[in-house]
Design a protein around this nucleic acid. Structure first.
Lengths: 127, 127
DNA sequence: CAGAATCCAACCGGATACTG
DNA sequence: CAGTATCCGGTTGGATTCTG
């Protein structure tokens, strides 16, 4: 589109290619902590400390960054109860739940093909 | 399961938690280049140089690493034609195609919610 | 053409310490 | 309790050079 002279080779993927504009969504799904947190929130609202205890190995820093990011994207709601000490609850939004569903489908795929991938790797590594 | 004394708090996510064993699959989906390469291969076999031209901005190093990784997992087939100069074609395997389908579903989700996410971010950043 | 190998800068994320 | 701020080591990936 930008220049002439192409034959039948696909256009290079650039900024306005659909796949690229979806990068941030894919990053989200690929993100270790986001997936784990969304998975936990899928079973109901959780407090900050609850998440920290449940997501094994997550640092305070990463939990906060992950929640902020999910909140920014409208996937998670943050509810502050200004008691003392303060209480903060996190919930999946409706849209967050639909993404969570997609992730679950992906997890299903992985489950269905775990053996296959494992065997492929063994075979490949034997070379 | 490992220790007593829990109330109703979920078990911490550990190595043998399903979500963790699927980490490598999610990493694959979240990987910038893997998704782009699989997307391209979805429309038919491609040569190495063809991929390099089509995937805008990918370095030789990353293209090779990505293809090796996809091949290792049994998602991509590599066919060498030992002419001179050599010719190498890459194709999605059957399993690779099914994953590609999942990714497409995810891309569909992102398409359906792009506006929502964009607006969420604008609102959040305005704070 | 299709890679392999090396080098190095940038980013990521864990650990730690501090706060309203 | 629910964070924020700072430091810093490890990994990632781009640029470059070389090869069958």
């Amino acid at each position: 589109m930008t220049s002439a002279g192409h034959t039948d080779v696909r256009e290079p993927i650039s900024e306005d290619h659909p796949t690229c504009r979806l990068r941030d969504i894919l990053d989200r799904v690929g993100d270790k902590w986001s997936v784990l947190v969304m998975d936990l929130l899928g079973s109901g609202p959780k407090r900050y400390s609850e998440l920290q205890r449940s997501v094994d190995g997550i640092s305070q820093r990463m939990l906060t960054l992950t929640l902020r990011s999910l909140e920014r994207d409208g996937l998670v709601d943050r509810t502050v109860t200004p008691t003392s000490p303060p209480r903060v609850d996190y919930t999946l939004t409706e849209v967050g739940q639909t993404l969570s569903g997609q992730v679950r489908a992906l997890i299903q795929w992985a489950d269905d093909h775990r053996e296959y991938v494992a065997r492929s790797r063994l075979r490949y590594d034997a070379t």
